[in-house]
């Protein structure tokens, strides 16, 4: 499969704390990659590096073969859903969507989630009045809105009600089937189990392993991701 993102020798420290220690990995089209790992293992930093929010100390990231350092055009092909969405207090939902359309100079081509979450009826509500869950729905809808090649979702189901989480999951699978790459960080292993094709496990800033879910289960002989993980992580040889 075609590589769409290539991470090569990525290093990043915040002060004395080394968050990413020489991380290299490739991501191909048409798959869901779950980035897993304990707290402070570097998951968010890796995502943010790909998005250009964190500037790496060394190493390179290629998007469709071109380095992303000091560029921003490639973000046209990325939809990002942050862990906690936070928007200007007095901005209305409709305005937010309008603004992002303005910035991307793209039209809202994919309104599935907008409809699923019934956001269109709330266009006149201001951000200040929204609950955390609704904000997450807004963020999710924004991420998928422009039919991007790559979706990066940071803890997507945190704060979403079960129905909304389910809708999101279905959306992810649908996009994957269209040949999109979906990068997801998550703490909820059952969720990762359901949607993932591959698992990237980070530990203390390094890749512990990066395997297909099927391989992982086969190697460990387990049927569930959570059990497979427990098993593989307890063997020191990895």
């Amino acid at each position: 499969m075609e590589k769409i993102i290539a991470v090569d020798g990525l290093k990043k420290s915040f002060g004395r704390l080394e968050v990413l220690k020489n991380v290299s990995c490739d991501f191909a089209r048409g798959g869901v990659v779950s980035i897993l790992g304990p707290n402070a293992s570097g998951k968010t930093t890796l995502i943010k590096s790909i998005l250009g929010m964190v500037i790496p100390d060394s190493g390179n990231i290629l998007f469709k073969g071109n380095s992303i350092l000091n560029t921003f055009d490639y973000k046209k092909h990325i939809g990002y859903m942050p862990q906690i969405g936070h928007y200007p207090d007095n901005m209305k939902i409709g305005q937010l969507f309008k603004m992002v359309m303005d910035i991307r100079e793209q039209d809202a081509v994919d309104t599935d989630l907008l409809k699923a979450y019934q956001l269109e009826s709330m266009y006149q509500k201001t951000m200040r009045t929204l609950s955390g869950g609704t904000l997450q729905k807004v963020s999710a809808a924004l991420a998928f809105m422009f039919d991007p090649d790559v979706l990066i979702l940071d803890e997507p189901s945190a704060g979403l009600d079960p129905l909304a989480a389910e809708a999101l999951k279905e959306k992810i699978l649908e996009e994957k089937s269209k040949g999109k790459l979906v990068l997801v960080t998550s703490h909820i292993l059952s969720e990762a189990d359901e949607i993932s094709d591959q698992i990237l496990y980070l530990f203390e800033g390094q890749i512990k392993f990066y395997k297909t879910l099927a391989d992982l289960k086969q190697e460990t002989g387990e049927q569930k991701l959570s059990r497979a993980l427990t098993k593989i992580l307890s063997t020191p040889s990895c």
């Binding site: 490639y74 973000k75 990325i78 936070h86 910035i103 991307r104």
Partner: peptide, 13 residues
């Protein structure tokens, strides 16, 4: 607006 800024940075601008 720090988080909003983050969100803007994730956009092509």
């Amino acid at each position: 607006a720090a988080e909003f800024t983050e969100m803007l940075v994730s956009q092509p601008i």
